[in-house]
Protein backbone atom coordinates (compact mmCIF):
# COMPACT_ATOMS: atom_id res chain seq x y z
CA UNK A 1 0.00 0.00 0.00
CA UNK A 2 1.47 3.35 -1.00
CA UNK A 3 0.75 6.74 0.42
CA UNK A 4 -0.77 9.30 -1.92
CA UNK A 5 -1.54 12.96 -1.40
CA UNK A 6 -4.56 13.29 0.82
CA UNK A 7 -5.26 9.57 1.00
CA UNK A 8 -4.27 6.12 -0.20
CA UNK A 9 -3.87 4.63 -3.59
CA UNK A 10 -4.00 0.99 -4.52
CA UNK A 11 -0.67 -0.45 -5.53
CA UNK A 12 -2.00 -1.40 -8.96
CA UNK A 13 -2.22 0.33 -12.29
CA UNK A 14 -5.22 2.36 -13.37
CA UNK A 15 -6.12 -0.02 -16.19
CA UNK A 16 -5.95 -3.02 -13.85
CA UNK A 17 -8.14 -1.21 -11.34
CA UNK A 18 -10.62 -0.33 -14.09
CA UNK A 19 -10.70 -3.98 -15.13
CA UNK A 20 -11.31 -5.10 -11.56
CA UNK A 21 -14.03 -2.50 -11.09
CA UNK A 22 -15.71 -3.55 -14.33
CA UNK A 23 -15.63 -7.19 -13.25
CA UNK A 24 -17.10 -6.27 -9.88
CA UNK A 25 -19.86 -4.24 -11.49
CA UNK A 26 -20.71 -7.15 -13.77
CA UNK A 27 -20.85 -9.45 -10.78
CA UNK A 28 -23.19 -6.98 -9.09
CA UNK A 29 -25.42 -6.88 -12.12
CA UNK A 30 -25.61 -10.65 -12.23
CA UNK A 31 -26.32 -11.28 -8.59
CA UNK A 32 -27.98 -8.24 -7.04
CA UNK A 33 -31.39 -8.56 -8.71
CA UNK A 34 -31.68 -12.10 -7.40
CA UNK A 35 -30.71 -10.89 -3.96
CA UNK A 36 -33.36 -8.15 -4.03
CA UNK A 37 -36.01 -10.72 -4.94
CA UNK A 38 -34.88 -12.97 -2.11
CA UNK A 39 -34.81 -10.07 0.34
CA UNK A 40 -38.31 -8.98 -0.65
CA UNK A 41 -39.61 -12.55 -0.32
CA UNK A 42 -37.94 -12.88 3.04
CA UNK A 43 -39.52 -9.62 4.20
CA UNK A 44 -42.96 -10.75 3.10
CA UNK A 45 -42.56 -14.12 4.75
CA UNK A 46 -41.42 -12.49 7.97
CA UNK A 47 -44.35 -10.08 7.88
CA UNK A 48 -46.67 -13.08 7.51
CA UNK A 49 -45.01 -14.82 10.44
CA UNK A 50 -45.29 -11.64 12.49
CA UNK A 51 -49.02 -11.52 11.83
CA UNK A 52 -49.39 -15.18 12.70
CA UNK A 53 -47.53 -14.98 16.01
CA UNK A 54 -47.51 -12.17 18.58
CA UNK A 55 -44.24 -10.33 19.33
CA UNK A 56 -42.01 -12.30 21.60
CA UNK A 57 -43.69 -15.59 20.83
CA UNK A 58 -41.70 -18.38 19.24
CA UNK A 59 -41.65 -18.27 15.46
CA UNK A 60 -39.33 -18.69 12.51
CA UNK A 61 -35.92 -19.61 13.80
CA UNK A 62 -37.19 -19.93 17.34
CA UNK A 63 -39.61 -22.69 16.37
CA UNK A 64 -36.92 -25.22 15.69
CA UNK A 65 -36.02 -27.75 18.29
CA UNK A 66 -32.27 -27.35 17.96
CA UNK A 67 -32.46 -23.67 18.90
CA UNK A 68 -31.95 -24.36 22.56
CA UNK A 69 -28.89 -26.35 21.73
CA UNK A 70 -27.86 -23.52 19.42
CA UNK A 71 -28.18 -21.02 22.25
CA UNK A 72 -26.12 -23.20 24.52
CA UNK A 73 -23.54 -23.49 21.76
CA UNK A 74 -23.58 -19.71 21.40
CA UNK A 75 -22.57 -19.25 25.00
CA UNK A 76 -19.53 -21.32 24.18
CA UNK A 77 -18.79 -20.03 20.70
CA UNK A 78 -19.45 -16.33 21.13
CA UNK A 79 -17.38 -16.31 24.26
CA UNK A 80 -14.81 -18.49 22.55
CA UNK A 81 -14.61 -16.23 19.56
CA UNK A 82 -14.16 -13.18 21.75
CA UNK A 83 -11.41 -14.97 23.61
CA UNK A 84 -9.83 -16.04 20.34
CA UNK A 85 -9.80 -12.44 19.11
CA UNK A 86 -8.15 -11.37 22.30
CA UNK A 87 -5.60 -14.15 22.24
CA UNK A 88 -4.69 -13.28 18.68
CA UNK A 89 -4.18 -9.68 19.59
CA UNK A 90 -2.33 -10.48 22.76
CA UNK A 91 0.07 -12.76 20.95
CA UNK A 92 1.84 -9.76 19.56
CA UNK A 93 1.30 -7.20 22.29
CA UNK A 94 1.66 -9.11 25.52
CA UNK A 95 -1.02 -10.06 27.99
CA UNK A 96 -1.77 -9.74 31.64
CA UNK A 97 -1.37 -12.69 33.96
CA UNK A 98 -4.79 -14.08 32.96
CA UNK A 99 -4.03 -13.80 29.28
CA UNK A 100 -6.79 -11.22 28.87
CA UNK A 101 -6.80 -7.43 28.90
CA UNK A 102 -7.93 -6.16 32.30
CA UNK A 103 -10.86 -4.13 30.97
CA UNK A 104 -12.43 -7.05 29.19
CA UNK A 105 -14.27 -8.73 32.03
CA UNK A 106 -17.53 -10.48 31.26
CA UNK A 107 -19.67 -7.62 32.58
CA UNK A 108 -18.22 -5.26 29.98
CA UNK A 109 -17.64 -7.68 27.14
CA UNK A 110 -21.08 -9.25 27.31
CA UNK A 111 -23.72 -6.69 28.20
CA UNK A 112 -26.96 -8.22 29.45
CA UNK A 113 -29.40 -9.20 26.73
CA UNK A 114 -32.41 -6.86 26.62
CA UNK A 115 -35.69 -8.04 28.11
CA UNK A 116 -37.99 -9.77 25.65
CA UNK A 117 -40.45 -6.86 25.45
CA UNK A 118 -37.68 -4.45 24.47
CA UNK A 119 -36.21 -6.69 21.76
CA UNK A 120 -36.53 -4.85 18.45
CA UNK A 121 -36.22 -7.88 16.18
CA UNK A 122 -38.14 -11.06 16.91
CA UNK A 123 -38.35 -14.55 15.44
CA UNK A 124 -36.51 -14.93 12.12
CA UNK A 125 -35.85 -11.19 12.00
CA UNK A 126 -33.33 -11.65 14.79
CA UNK A 127 -31.24 -13.73 12.46
CA UNK A 128 -31.58 -11.13 9.69
CA UNK A 129 -30.53 -8.35 12.07
CA UNK A 130 -27.66 -10.52 13.33
CA UNK A 131 -26.50 -11.04 9.75
CA UNK A 132 -26.60 -7.32 8.97
CA UNK A 133 -24.67 -6.64 12.19
CA UNK A 134 -22.03 -9.28 11.36
CA UNK A 135 -21.58 -7.73 7.93
CA UNK A 136 -21.25 -4.26 9.48
CA UNK A 137 -18.73 -5.67 11.92
CA UNK A 138 -16.65 -6.99 9.03
CA UNK A 139 -16.93 -3.68 7.15
CA UNK A 140 -15.78 -1.83 10.27
CA UNK A 141 -12.91 -4.26 10.83
CA UNK A 142 -11.62 -3.95 7.27
CA UNK A 143 -12.04 -0.18 7.50
CA UNK A 144 -9.92 -0.17 10.68
CA UNK A 145 -7.31 -2.34 9.01
CA UNK A 146 -7.13 0.06 6.06
CA UNK A 147 -6.88 3.03 8.41
CA UNK A 148 -4.15 1.34 10.46
CA UNK A 149 -2.27 0.45 7.27
CA UNK A 150 -2.67 4.07 6.17
CA UNK A 151 -1.13 5.20 9.42
CA UNK A 152 1.76 2.78 8.72
CA UNK A 153 0.99 0.86 11.91
CA UNK A 154 1.76 -2.44 10.18
CA UNK A 155 4.81 -1.31 8.20
CA UNK A 156 4.78 -2.34 4.54
CA UNK A 157 1.48 -3.96 3.58
CA UNK A 158 1.64 -6.56 0.78
CA UNK A 159 -0.13 -5.22 -2.34
CA UNK A 160 -2.33 -8.33 -2.54
CA UNK A 161 -3.54 -7.71 1.01
CA UNK A 162 -4.48 -4.10 0.18
CA UNK A 163 -6.48 -5.23 -2.83
CA UNK A 164 -8.15 -7.99 -0.87
CA UNK A 165 -9.14 -5.76 2.06
CA UNK A 166 -10.66 -3.15 -0.26
CA UNK A 167 -12.59 -5.79 -2.21
CA UNK A 168 -13.78 -7.75 0.85
CA UNK A 169 -15.01 -4.55 2.49
CA UNK A 170 -17.06 -3.74 -0.64
CA UNK A 171 -18.52 -7.26 -0.62
CA UNK A 172 -19.57 -6.97 3.02
CA UNK A 173 -21.21 -3.60 2.34
CA UNK A 174 -23.33 -5.27 -0.34
CA UNK A 175 -24.14 -8.22 1.92
CA UNK A 176 -25.27 -5.87 4.70
CA UNK A 177 -27.41 -4.04 2.15
CA UNK A 178 -29.11 -7.30 1.14
CA UNK A 179 -29.95 -8.15 4.77
CA UNK A 180 -31.12 -4.62 5.47
CA UNK A 181 -33.42 -4.74 2.44
CA UNK A 182 -35.11 -7.72 4.07
CA UNK A 183 -35.53 -5.75 7.30
CA UNK A 184 -36.99 -2.82 5.39
CA UNK A 185 -39.38 -5.11 3.53
CA UNK A 186 -40.54 -6.45 6.90
CA UNK A 187 -41.15 -2.91 8.14
CA UNK A 188 -38.27 -2.97 10.62
CA UNK A 189 -35.43 -0.47 11.06
CA UNK A 190 -32.18 -1.29 9.27
CA UNK A 191 -29.06 -2.20 11.23
CA UNK A 192 -26.40 0.38 10.45
CA UNK A 193 -24.01 -0.27 13.34
CA UNK A 194 -22.69 -3.30 15.21
CA UNK A 195 -25.11 -4.20 18.02
CA UNK A 196 -23.20 -7.35 18.97
CA UNK A 197 -21.96 -8.34 22.39
CA UNK A 198 -18.56 -9.39 21.02
CA UNK A 199 -17.91 -6.04 19.33
CA UNK A 200 -15.79 -4.72 22.19
CA UNK A 201 -13.56 -7.78 22.00
CA UNK A 202 -13.22 -7.34 18.24
CA UNK A 203 -12.31 -3.65 18.41
CA UNK A 204 -9.87 -4.32 21.25
CA UNK A 205 -8.21 -7.02 19.20
CA UNK A 206 -8.04 -4.73 16.18
CA UNK A 207 -6.49 -1.97 18.28
CA UNK A 208 -3.87 -4.42 19.49
CA UNK A 209 -3.03 -5.88 16.09
CA UNK A 210 0.57 -4.92 15.43
CA UNK A 211 1.31 -6.69 12.16
CA UNK A 212 -0.42 -7.51 8.89
CA UNK A 213 -0.60 -11.13 10.04
CA UNK A 214 -2.39 -10.11 13.26
CA UNK A 215 -4.94 -8.15 11.24
CA UNK A 216 -5.36 -10.96 8.70
CA UNK A 217 -5.93 -13.52 11.46
CA UNK A 218 -8.66 -11.34 12.96
CA UNK A 219 -10.28 -10.89 9.55
CA UNK A 220 -10.11 -14.66 9.02
CA UNK A 221 -12.02 -15.25 12.26
CA UNK A 222 -14.71 -12.78 11.21
CA UNK A 223 -15.05 -14.44 7.80
CA UNK A 224 -15.25 -17.90 9.33
CA UNK A 225 -17.82 -16.73 11.86
CA UNK A 226 -19.98 -15.19 9.11
CA UNK A 227 -19.79 -18.20 6.77
CA UNK A 228 -20.59 -20.64 9.56
CA UNK A 229 -23.42 -18.47 10.89
CA UNK A 230 -25.07 -18.55 7.47
CA UNK A 231 -24.68 -22.32 7.30
CA UNK A 232 -26.41 -22.58 10.66
CA UNK A 233 -29.14 -20.20 9.45
CA UNK A 234 -29.77 -22.29 6.36
CA UNK A 235 -30.43 -25.25 8.62
CA UNK A 236 -32.55 -23.41 11.17
CA UNK A 237 -34.30 -20.90 8.91
CA UNK A 238 -37.91 -21.12 7.75
CA UNK A 239 -38.33 -18.60 4.96
CA UNK A 240 -37.09 -19.50 1.52
CA UNK A 241 -35.85 -15.96 0.91
CA UNK A 242 -33.76 -16.03 4.09
CA UNK A 243 -32.39 -19.47 3.32
CA UNK A 244 -31.43 -18.49 -0.22
CA UNK A 245 -29.83 -15.23 0.90
CA UNK A 246 -27.72 -17.01 3.50
CA UNK A 247 -26.84 -19.76 1.02
CA UNK A 248 -25.54 -17.28 -1.58
CA UNK A 249 -23.48 -15.26 0.90
CA UNK A 250 -21.84 -18.12 2.83
CA UNK A 251 -19.68 -19.30 -0.12
CA UNK A 252 -18.34 -15.78 -0.65
CA UNK A 253 -17.34 -15.42 3.01
CA UNK A 254 -15.72 -18.86 2.75
CA UNK A 255 -13.78 -17.69 -0.32
CA UNK A 256 -12.60 -14.62 1.61
CA UNK A 257 -11.36 -17.00 4.29
CA UNK A 258 -9.46 -19.06 1.69
CA UNK A 259 -7.60 -16.05 0.34
CA UNK A 260 -6.72 -14.93 3.86
CA UNK A 261 -5.43 -18.41 4.71
CA UNK A 262 -3.26 -18.45 1.59
CA UNK A 263 -1.80 -15.04 2.47
CA UNK A 264 -1.19 -16.27 6.03
CA UNK A 265 0.67 -19.31 4.74
CA UNK A 266 -2.09 -21.79 5.60
CA UNK A 267 -3.82 -24.36 3.40
CA UNK A 268 -6.76 -22.52 1.79
CA UNK A 269 -9.36 -25.33 2.00
CA UNK A 270 -8.77 -27.10 5.31
CA UNK A 271 -12.16 -28.82 5.66
CA UNK A 272 -14.18 -31.05 3.33
CA UNK A 273 -17.37 -29.69 4.91
CA UNK A 274 -17.88 -26.21 6.31
CA UNK A 275 -17.88 -26.57 10.09
CA UNK A 276 -20.27 -24.74 12.44
CA UNK A 277 -18.26 -24.48 15.63
CA UNK A 278 -17.72 -20.74 15.18
CA UNK A 279 -21.27 -19.87 14.13
CA UNK A 280 -22.92 -17.01 15.99
CA UNK A 281 -26.58 -17.14 17.02
CA UNK A 282 -29.11 -14.32 17.34
CA UNK A 283 -28.33 -14.28 21.08
CA UNK A 284 -25.24 -12.27 20.15
CA UNK A 285 -27.50 -9.34 19.22
CA UNK A 286 -27.92 -6.58 21.79
CA UNK A 287 -31.01 -4.97 20.21
Amino acid sequence: MRRARGGWELPIGESELSGLTKDMEEAHRETLPAMRTSAAELGERIRELGQASPPGSPGGLAQDGPVDAGRRRFLLTAGGLGAAFLLTACSSTGTDEKGLPPHDGPSEALPPRPAVDTVMYTAELRFVALSAALENQAVGAYGSILAAAGAEKFGAVPPAVSTFVTMAMAHHIDHAKAWNEALTAAGKPVVTDVPLSNQRAVTTALDRAATVDDAAKLALQLEEQAAQTYLSAVYHGKSRGGIETAATIAPVEAMHASVLRFVLGQYPVPDAFLPEDMAATPGLLTV
Binding site: A27, T31, P159, T163, D174, V252, M255, V259
Partner: peptide, 11 residues
Protein backbone atom coordinates in the same frame (compact mmCIF):
# COMPACT_ATOMS: atom_id res chain seq x y z
CA UNK B 1 -6.05 -10.17 -3.71
CA UNK B 2 -9.20 -10.10 -5.83
CA UNK B 3 -8.53 -12.74 -8.52
CA UNK B 4 -10.02 -15.59 -6.50
CA UNK B 5 -13.39 -14.01 -5.74
CA UNK B 6 -15.15 -12.63 -8.81
CA UNK B 7 -18.66 -12.69 -7.28
CA UNK B 8 -20.29 -10.64 -4.56
CA UNK B 9 -22.94 -13.35 -4.11
CA UNK B 10 -22.65 -16.98 -5.14
CA UNK B 11 -24.39 -17.21 -8.51
Amino acid sequence: GSAGIPDVFQA
